[in-house]
Amino acid sequence: MGTIKTLNKWANAHTYYPLDLLRIVLGVFLFTKGISFMANSQILMDLFSPIQNIAGGMITVHYVAPAHFIGGALIAFGLLTRWAIIAQLPILIGAILINFVGEMNTTNLVVATITLLVCIFFLFYGSGKHSADYYFKMQQ
């Protein structure tokens, strides 16, 4: 717990608007991907076709869309950012691995890799000073 407090203090001392904007853009991107997967679940099923025979495949399909939808909203507002990103990491790692198991789609690979790297950055950086987490912490 002390490590998280230390990271939060460092992040709040070194917060900048472009980083907050990047966090919001990441959250909106994940939110729109969640909406896209909910609206057209066949796209998601096609993405999972290389691993459809693995146990838990249907559970995974039902985990991805809500995790992106809810996690994206939380990340955009800066509320429970680290927890929301932890929920995104298995999905993004799976998105990268699917490109190597199935048909290689370089655009999806690049987008998934960049999203994973930005998520890992915010996993350590936190939500920053301009977030709901910081606001609620200051209200205590």
Rank of each mutant, 00 (worst) to 15 (best):
I114G: 13
P90V: 04
A112Q: 09
G128H: 04
Q88Y: 02
G102F: 10
I114R: 05
I91Q: 11
E103Y: 08
V101C: 07
T113I: 03
G126I: 12
Y125L: 00
G94S: 15
V111Q: 02
I120G: 07
I120Q: 12
G94P: 13
V111K: 01
G102P: 14
T107L: 13
G102W: 10
L92D: 08
G128F: 06
G102H: 10
T106G: 03
A87R: 10
L92E: 11
I96L: 11
F122Q: 04
M104A: 11
F121R: 07
V101Q: 06
G128C: 09
L123Q: 10
G126V: 04
L123R: 03
F121W: 10
L89W: 00
I96D: 02
G126Q: 09
F122S: 01
S127K: 04
A87C: 14
F122D: 01
I86L: 15
T107R: 12
G102S: 05
T106Q: 08
V111F: 13
G128L: 06
T113L: 11
L89D: 02
G94I: 06
T113D: 07
A87L: 15
A95Q: 00
P90G: 08
F124P: 01
L92R: 03
G126C: 14
Y125S: 01
A87H: 05
N108Y: 10
C119A: 15
L92P: 01
I114T: 13
L97M: 14
E103R: 07
V110N: 03
V111H: 01
I96K: 04
M104E: 05
E103F: 10
Q88I: 06
L109Q: 06
I114S: 11
V118R: 00
L109P: 07
T106S: 10
V101K: 11
A95P: 01
T106W: 12
L123K: 00
N105L: 08
L89E: 05
F122P: 04
L109A: 12
M104L: 12
G94E: 11
I86A: 15
A95Y: 00
V110L: 14
T115V: 11
N108I: 04
F124N: 08
I114M: 12
F100T: 06
I93N: 10
P90I: 01
I120K: 05
A112P: 09
V111M: 11
V101S: 03
T107V: 13
N105H: 10
T106K: 08
I98A: 08
T107Q: 11
N99Y: 12
M104W: 10
I114P: 04
I93C: 15
L116Q: 10
I96T: 08
E103D: 09
M104R: 07
Y125W: 07
Q88M: 15
I96F: 12
F122H: 04
V110P: 04
L123V: 00
L92H: 04
I86C: 14
P90K: 09
I93H: 12
I120D: 09
G126H: 15
I114E: 09
L116W: 12
F121C: 06
E103Q: 08
G128E: 02
I93T: 13
L97P: 05
A95G: 13
